[in-house]
Design a protein around this nucleic acid. Sequence first.
DNA 1: AAAACTGCCAACCGCCGGACC
DNA 2: TGGTCCGGCGGTTGGCAGTTT
Length: 260
Amino acid sequence: MGRQPCCDKLGVKKGPWTVEEDKKLVNFILTHGQCCWRAVPKLAGLRRCGKSCRLRWTNYLRPDLKRGLLNEAEEQLVIDLHARLGNRWSKIAARLPGRTDNEIKNHWNTHIKKKLIKMGIDPITHEPLNKEATPPNTLCQSLDQRDIEVNHQESTKTCGQASSIDNSSAPTENSSTGESQSLDPGDIDLLMSNIWPESYLDDSLWNFPATGEDYSNIGSSSPENYSEFSLNYKDFFGEDFGFGCFSDMDMNSQDMGGKH
DNA sequence: AAAACTGCCAACCGCCGGACC
DNA sequence: TGGTCCGGCGGTTGGCAGTTT
């Protein structure tokens, strides 16, 4: 009988997100938390499929995202993790706080891969290119037998170092082109600086458990952060936000935790 | 100046696995 | 136990921006 499509194809919008759609989605997530993505578009008044909403949130709108290119340390960590985990981007991303699997995957395909090839290293096997290609299972076997947990700890440590080194990963010119189609570059900068305030770039905030990828509590677990985040949104979108949620949120931010 | 090319990244697609009934 | 739903994952693509010719 086949599965139902993830969304009703009729009337479902595709392509780049507009600022208005972002507003609606952010407003909804901030108000209700992350729950039942399938229902989100309908409840948030979006003509998008739930999957699209989830991706937009996790890959772009989440307040805890680091922006900008991966720095050297992060890149090295990605290479190291890729050698051990292969193309398990989500697992790799879990070791790089503030980075998404999509971002890492893109960076791998556009930068690291080429860099490794240039260095004479096979990006798949991580063996020298002039050597006989090593089959993937052999690679796994050839990895030293150190406990994977030890590796994780090392990786996490490295990651922490990366974060402390990385001051260049603050919001930069980096931005998608799609979502900002109706914005001037200056507006984009303003948006970024408001959505990702400095406090979110504070390295100390990136020390959450490496395996804990649950961002559903963003803001709600920390009323202060939540308030700050919402206030910054409010600053940017102004009174014209259209949902009047922020005033309530500011007043009731401490209640947000139980709304999931 | 304009066409062609290249790089980059946001977003989509299809599949998979876990949860639930 | 099997069917269905849903979230998540990895691969791929479309299109914009920048660079080269």
